[in-house]
C-alpha cells in the first residue's frame, strides 16, 4: 500500500504544472524510497525525470512497488481543486485501479477526497548513464525563465555560448536578433541570486526555444536552476525539490 502525505499540496501542484504541457501520460513508480517518473514528450525531444524522495513527504510509506499510470490533464484537474496550503495525502492499494487524493484544510475541518482512475501505460525506460559535462551554470531560475521567454519572441532557436566566466544567450530571428550575457556573480546575502559558472571546455549549443519555454514552467519549484552542458549532448536542466529533483534532458539542434 502507498500512503504519502505532503504537508502542503503546493509541491505536487507545482510539479504537475511543470510537466503537464510536455507529457500526457506518465507512469509514477512508487517504491519505499519515494516516487519517480521518467517520461518523454510527444515530439521525442525532451526527457523528464522526476524524483520525489520520501523526505519530501511529511509521512511516507510504500510496502510494495506500485506503478500508477496517470493521465496528467486529469490529475491536474483534481490537483487544482485542492488549495496550495492543504495537506495532501496520496493513497493507493497494492494492485490499484485508482489513486485517491485527500486534501485536508489545516485551519478548518474540511476534507475533500478524490479518486482518479489509473491507466495501463506502455513506456520504454531509458537508462541514463552518469553523463560528463563540460560546463555547469547555476543561476536564478526566474532570470533564466525571463531570458527564455524574451529570446523566444525573436526566434525558434536559442543559442547558449559559454566562455570563461560568462554565458551568452543568443537569438537570431527573421526580423532581428538579440542576446543576453550574464556573468559569474556572488551575492553573499541572497545566495539564490548568485550565478556560478564552472567551465572545462567552451560551449556553443543551440536548442529549440519551445522546449526551453516548457522547461521554465518549473520556475516556481526552486529559486535556482542548474544547467549542465556538453558538446553534441543533451543539456540537463535541474530544479531541486526539498528532497529530490525535477530534471529535463533536452536534445540539441544541429547544423544540417
Amino acid at each position: 500500500m502507498l500512503e504519502g502525505k505532503f504537508d502542503e499540496a503546493s509541491l505536487l501542484k507545482k510539479v504537475i504544472d511543470a510537466m503537464k504541457d510536455s507529457v500526457k501520460l506518465c507512469n509514477f513508480n512508487c517504491t519505499e524510497n519515494g516516487i519517480s517518473v521518467q517520461a518523454i514528450d510527444d515530439s521525442r525531444v525532451l526527457l523528464i525525470s522526476l524524483l520525489i524522495e520520501a523526505g519530501s513527504f511529511e509521512d511516507y510509506r510504500c510496502d510494495r512497488n506500485i506503478v500508477l499510470g496517470l493521465e496528467m490533464e486529469s490529475l491536474n484537474k483534481i490537483i487544482k481543486n485542492g488549495n496550495a496550503s492543504d495537506m495532501l495525502t496520496l493513497v493507493a492499494e497494492d494492485s490499484p485501479d485508482a489513486l485517491n487524493l485527500i486534501f485536508e484544510d489545516k485551519r478548518r475541518d474540511r476534507i475533500a477526497e478524490y479518486s482518479l482512475k489509473l491507466m495501463d501505460i506502455d513506456q520504454d525506460f531509458l537508462k541514463i548513464e552518469d553523463m560528463k559535462f563540460d560546463a555547469v551554470v547555476n543561476m536564478p531560475s526566474a532570470e533564466f525563465a525571463k531570458i527564455c521567454r524574451d529570446m523566444k519572441t525573436l526566434s525558434e532557436s536559442l543559442q547558449i555560448i559559454i566562455t570563461k566566466d560568462s554565458v551568452k544567450f543568443n537569438s537570431e530571428g527573421d526580423f532581428g536578433s538579440g542576446s543576453v550575457v550574464i556573468k559569474s556573480f556572488t551575492d553573499l546575502e541572497k545566495t539564490e541570486e548568485s550565478v556560478r559558472i564552472t567551465l572545462e571546455k567552451p560551449i556553443n549549443l543551440t536548442f529549440g526555444a519551445k522546449y526551453l519555454n516548457d522547461i521554465i514552467k518549473s520556475t516556481p519549484l526552486a529559486s535556482q536552476v542548474t544547467i549542465k552542458l556538453c558538446d553534441k549532448q543533451p543539456a540537463l536542466f535541474e530544479y531541486q525539490l526539498p528532497s529530490g529533483y525535477l530534471r529535463f534532458y533536452l536534445a540539441p539542434k544541429f547544423e544540417d
Binding site: R44, T206, K253
Partner: peptide, 14 residues
Amino acid sequence: KEKQAGIESFFFSG
C-alpha cells in the same frame, strides 16, 4: 538549416 535531434538516440533502452 538547423535540425532538431531526438532525445532517445542519446540514451540506452533498458
